Amino acid sequence: MIAEDFVKLMSRMSILDGRDVDQMTLEMWEPLVADLDYEDAIEGLNNHYRSDVRRPTPAHLRKAAELVHRDRLYADVRTHEQCIPHRHSLRDEPGSCRDHHADGERDDRCVNGCY
């Protein structure tokens, strides 16, 4: 994310949980979260505040943003006709082979050997 977006993200946290965001805070957080996508980080932060009463740490924010990113990637993978090999996993998560091959049969279109 760009510096301007990072400052907006930190300002949002300041408003929501009352933390002081000074120059030192910005300098400590930036290398830990600057590589995140801004939209993923905002949605992840919103999800955190919806479900957790603790102030988010950089680790909380990273995890929440990664979950948002994963959900966005898998959102369009629902049937084996939409099967995209690099999005496959053996876990029972949205978009995984087991998710859209509920009958347990490996489909010929699953070319990455996922099942």
Rank of each mutant, 00 (worst) to 15 (best):
M1V: 07
L61M: 10
R109D: 08
P58N: 10
P94A: 11
K8W: 06
A75W: 00
C97D: 07
I42S: 05
Y49N: 02
D76A: 06
A65N: 05
P56Y: 00
A102H: 01
M24I: 09
P31R: 09
D103C: 09
C110I: 07
A65M: 08
R55H: 12
D52V: 08
L73G: 06
M13T: 02
N46D: 12
L36Y: 07
I84F: 09
N112I: 09
F6M: 15
E105N: 04
D76S: 07
V68W: 01
H60F: 08
G104W: 07
I42H: 00
E105A: 12
E39V: 07
R91Q: 14
D108I: 09
V111W: 07
D22F: 09
L90E: 15
V53G: 05
R55D: 10
G18V: 02
R87I: 02
E81K: 13
S11Y: 06
M10K: 02
D5A: 08
S11N: 15
W29T: 02
R54M: 11
G104F: 04
D5N: 14
M1D: 04
I2V: 11
Q82L: 10
T57P: 01
R98C: 01
D92Q: 10
L32S: 14
M1Y: 01
D17R: 00
L90A: 15
E93A: 12
E81A: 14
P58E: 12
R70Q: 14
R50D: 04
Y115W: 11
K8R: 14
M10P: 01
R12M: 12
D107G: 13
G104C: 04
E81V: 09
I15Y: 11
A34Q: 15
D20C: 04
V111D: 04
E105Q: 11
E27C: 04
R87C: 03
I84C: 06
D52K: 11
R19P: 04
H101S: 14
K63T: 13
R12P: 00
M13D: 02
R106F: 00
C114N: 12
V77K: 00
H69G: 09
H88L: 11
R78M: 00
P94R: 13
D71M: 01
M28I: 11
E81N: 13
T79A: 09
Q82H: 06
R109L: 14
S89D: 13
E105G: 03
R70Y: 13
E43T: 10
G113V: 10
E81M: 11
R12D: 09
